[in-house]
Design a binder for these strands. Structure first.
Lengths: 333, 333
DNA sequence: GTCAATCTAGGAAACGTTTTCTCACCGAGA
DNA sequence: TCTCGGTGAGAAAACGTTTCCTAGATTGAC
């Protein structure tokens, strides 16, 4: 029942018979310390089960050894793939990740700055954050990396996947199958990725596609709900903003007695884990989540060191055909 | 291009013409301060865009205003429902959540203690952590709450869902449909939830079920892969440890030309978002994720205040029948 | 009108590190 | 032998808060 006091660096120093400065040096792996002394310190550390106080380290060094990740939706599996990879990189250099989910637009900057009181840098995965806020971040010289968002006029490193080309390829695939009238189940209107994808779909007019956009937002539920409106335009294919929306759409189609792809084709984007296991397996675009997450870390790490790496090119994503697309059904109505 | 120095409490104090102590009091909402002064301070705070330094606050007060969440797999949507709810509670009291994912068993305690250098308490969602480590945590008087894990001999508050009863109900449902030979696609062997669910399945012998267990681990991939072995036992139904495994199993069955539920029934557990949208929609058990997350926060918050709430009863989960289960096919072979 | 009790705000001491000085010591070159 | 870089370790000064303690002001009672 005894209330044991926290073990501090002082205790270790006393136990090892050295100064606190020396203990600190040993802990940080400094080489300018007598090996025998270092050994004594290490032993004392073990013995007392000493754990440095993070707050004190943060205060004294001005570094928190952690980075904040700001994302709009923790439940979207697409983000997992990314931050998992980032986490690996971060852990390698003993950095911790502080994941913050939040949705309300407008509040973004406040949240970021708040998080910033305990982190050294920021990874912004949020597509919706206002450019204004980003510029603010940039002007404060906060090490920040933007993920999947290319914002002209914002002076921050960005890493992103090329959305345009693979989406065009996907359209090409649909066109080849004879589709003409297609509905695009949109993502969040302010999201860069949504704009890029829609741009590609529109571009596909030259391939013979006749696209219409239906508002939605990249969740299963939204995909499910937007499907009815999309069907109002009598399309032979549904191009969903992402896999989740595609899955929702397929579920709704099934409910309505429409088969995928016999009656109507559906495509996704991202290739989340489920895409391959769904019925039918989703024709989609394999977004290089791991590479993206890794690259994000590399850029961020450089920013933390005060370096500014050259802007890397967009990562490429690959179109993959599975079972959810097929020949267009003869124009109905 | 000017390198602006961080705004400190000192700057605010000077700007408002008061002492730092007063600024601190205003920031913390203390009432023993002249309203007019408080207003001046607030204005200065705005003006200078002052953000308290988290590390310094942590050091001085001994509180970090954040809690650590330790979980084995970020990509399992089941956890999202839980931590989302916890996060709401935590945010309400201005606590931040530090989510740490890690898998390697053995390392658990080290990770926890490491995380502990910057948090006030811990939420352990990891089913696999050794009881020994938990006892250690308890003996260190670290405010900790165990989620979905009931461990006798560990003196820590726990919140959990009743796995046994609904699983038994699910078995009853299968029995009623005429199933006899069933295969249980197991979760992680050391997980409490897995033991409970398997116990219920075994208990169902008295309902006429004849269960066999197949090793697996609660991911889509694992469910997919364990299916072949399960089929070796010639079951009429597959009882998966959770929805993810069930989805994987269904995908494999489809590949093998077996229809669900006509040829073989499949059940899940958890009711993740996709369960309802899958084809066929999953018969599963609706785990009260939000309630669990909330309750976890309530318990943890009490622990942080040094109080020890009474152990709450297990939360109940509801069996829900959807389309993935049907009458047993006449015993084959 | 004095004195005690109460309340408010400032001064200063923590909090546990890192890091900058500073100093003692050592071997080498003169 | 004396001085001079160079090296390794301790003393002490940050780091930016919170909070305890105390001095002064204000109020109320006599």
């Amino acid at each position: 029942m005894k209330e044991r006091r926290r073990v501090t660096i002082r205790d270790v120093a006393d136990a090892a018979g050295v100064s606190v400065a020396t203990v600190s040096r040993v802990m940080s792996g400094s080489l300018t310390v007598n090996p025998e002394m270092a050994e004594r310190v290490r032993r004392a550390t073990e013995e007392l089960e000493y754990r440095p106080n993070g707050a004190a380290q943060g205060l004294a060094s001005g570094m928190h050894r952690s980075v904040g990740v700001v994302l709009p939706d923790l439940s979207n599996p697409y983000f997992h793939g990314i931050i998992k990879a980032t986490n690996v990189g971060a852990a390698r250099e003993r950095y911790r990740m502080l994941v913050t989910e939040w949705q309300e637009p407008g509040e973004e900057l406040g949240v970021c700055l708040d998080v910033l009181s305990r982190v050294d840098g920021l990874l912004v995965l949020s597509a919706r954050m206002e450019a204004e806020s980003l510029r603010d971040l940039a002007s404060r010289r906060v090490p920040t990396v933007l993920v999947n968002r290319v914002e002209l006029g914002v002076d921050l490193p960005m890493v992103a996947v090329d959305n345009f080309s693979p989406m065009l390829e996907l359209c090409q695939h649909l066109a080849t199958l004879g589709h003409r009238r297609v509905a695009y189940l949109a993502g969040s209107p302010s999201a860069w990725q949504n704009r890029e994808r829609w741009k590609a779909v529109q571009q596909a007019r030259i391939l013979g596609l006749d696209p219409v956009m239906v508002a939605s937002d990249g969740t299963i539920e939204a995909g499910y709900e937007a499907t009815d409106e999309a069907l109002g335009h009598d399309p032979t294919a549904l191009i969903a903003f992402n896999d989740l929306a595609a899955l929702g759409a397929i579920a709704r189609l099934r409910e309505l007695g429409l088969r995928t792809p016999e009656d109507i084709s559906v495509t996704g984007f991202d290739d989340v884990a489920l895409a391959r296991y769904a019925d039918p397996a989703l024709t989609t675009i394999v977004s290089p989540k791991a590479a993206l997450g890794e690259q994000a870390w590399v850029m961020l790490e450089a920013s933390l060191r005060g370096e500014r790496l050259e802007q890397p090119p967009l990562l490429s994503a690959a179109f993959v055909q599975r079972a959810s697309t097929g020949p267009a059904k003869g124009a109905r109505a």
